[in-house]
Simulated scan of single mutants.
Amino acid sequence: MTYCVGLRLDKGLVFMSDTRTNAGIDNVSVFRKMYRWVRPGDRVLTLLAAGNLATTQAVVGMLEEHSKAADERAPSILQMPSMFQTAKLIGETLKEVISDSAKNGPESEATFGASFILGGQIKGGATRLFQIYPEGNFIEATADTPFFQIGEHKYGKPILLRAYDPAMSFAEATKLLLLSFDSTLKANLSVGLPLDLQFYEDGSLKAGAEFRIDQNDPYYRAISDGWSDALKAAFASLPDFDRV
C-alpha cells in the first residue's frame, strides 16, 4: 500500500508521499512514488502514484518515453497545452496500461488498479491539482476540497480536516502533512519511511525545493514525539466521565 497527499495553498502546492511497497510481510521494498517534469519558464508537473507498482511504473515509463520522443503520434506530457489536457493524457495512459494488463493476465482489471495525484502549472494557466482514477477519469481540487489523498488515507485525514488553512506557509503545511503521515505510519505497517516532500510556488514556473525525510530526521522526530506528548496532555486535561 502507500499514502500520498497533494495540498493546495494560496502560496502554491505541497506534495508528500511515502516510499514503502509491500508484497507480503516478508517482501517490503522502498520505491519512489513522486515524479516531476520541469521545463523552466514553461511548466512544472508533479505526479504522485498509488496502487499496483507495475501499473504505476508502466504509466510513468510511457510518459517519460513520450516526453523524449519526437513522434507526434505519441503525445508528450511536456507538450500538453493545459493542466486539464495533461490530466486527460495521464488518465488515458493509465486506462490503456490497466486494460492491456487485464487482457494479457489471468485476473480482473482491479488487480492492476492504480491512481494518481497531478499538480503543477503550465505557462498561461493557473496552478491546478487533480486526482486521477483507475478508470481514467479525474477531478480537480477546489476551495471546498483543497487536498487529495490516495492510498491508505483514512488515518491521516482527520488532522488535515481540522487544521488545514489555505493561508498556511510551506513550513506550516509541512508540519501538518508530517502529522498526517505520522498518524498513518503508526496505524498501518504498509506505509513507511522515508517520505518524499516537494513544493511548488504559484507562478514561479520553476522546480521548488525537494526533500527526503527518514526516520533519523531531527525535525520529523520532534514533530512525532511532540504530537504524541501533546495528545496525551490534551486527553488528560479533558473532564472524566462522572456518571459511573
Rank of each mutant, 00 (worst) to 15 (best):
P106K: 15
G105I: 04
L161D: 15
I117T: 05
T86N: 05
F130C: 02
G151I: 04
P166T: 01
Y155Q: 12
F148E: 03
R73T: 07
D144V: 07
P146T: 05
D71W: 03
T127Q: 14
A74R: 15
A141P: 08
K88Y: 14
L78P: 02
A114F: 06
F112H: 14
L160F: 10
L129Y: 03
A143L: 14
T111A: 11
E152P: 00
T127N: 12
G120L: 04
A167W: 10
G136V: 04
A102R: 12
F147G: 03
S108P: 09
I159P: 12
G151K: 02
I77H: 06
Y164S: 10
D71H: 06
T127Y: 09
S76P: 15
L78W: 03
R73Q: 11
Q149D: 09
F170K: 13
Q121L: 07
E107M: 11
E92T: 03
F148K: 01
M83L: 14
D100T: 00
D165V: 03
T93M: 14
F148P: 01
R128H: 06
N104R: 12
A163E: 15
F84W: 11
Q85T: 06
A74K: 14
S99F: 12
R162F: 09
G124W: 08
Q85P: 04
P146K: 09
F112S: 02
S108E: 14
E96A: 09
A167E: 15
S99W: 12
K88F: 13
L118A: 07
F116H: 01
H66Y: 15
G113E: 10
P75A: 00
G105A: 08
R162G: 11
M168D: 15
T127P: 15
P75D: 02
Q149A: 06
S108Q: 10
G136D: 09
D144Y: 13
A110Q: 14
A163L: 15
P134K: 02
D165R: 14
V97F: 04
F112I: 01
E96S: 11
P158M: 02
G156S: 07
Q85H: 11
L160T: 08
V97S: 02
E140F: 07
L161M: 14
E92C: 09
E140R: 12
P81R: 05
K123T: 07
Y133A: 03
S82R: 06
E72A: 14
P75K: 01
V97Y: 04
A141T: 04
D165L: 10
G136L: 09
A102T: 06
Q149E: 15
I117N: 05
A70P: 00
T142M: 09
F148C: 05
G151C: 06
P81N: 06
K123G: 07
I150A: 03
D165E: 15
T145G: 05
A126V: 00
K103W: 10
E140W: 08
L129P: 01
A141N: 09
T111G: 03
E109T: 06
T145D: 11
R73Y: 07
G125K: 06
A114C: 08
D100H: 08
M83T: 02
I90A: 05
L161F: 10
P75C: 01
S99Y: 12
Q79H: 12
R162A: 12
L160G: 13
Q149I: 04
A141Q: 08
A167P: 11
K103I: 00
S115T: 00
R128Y: 00
G156A: 05
S108I: 03
N104P: 00
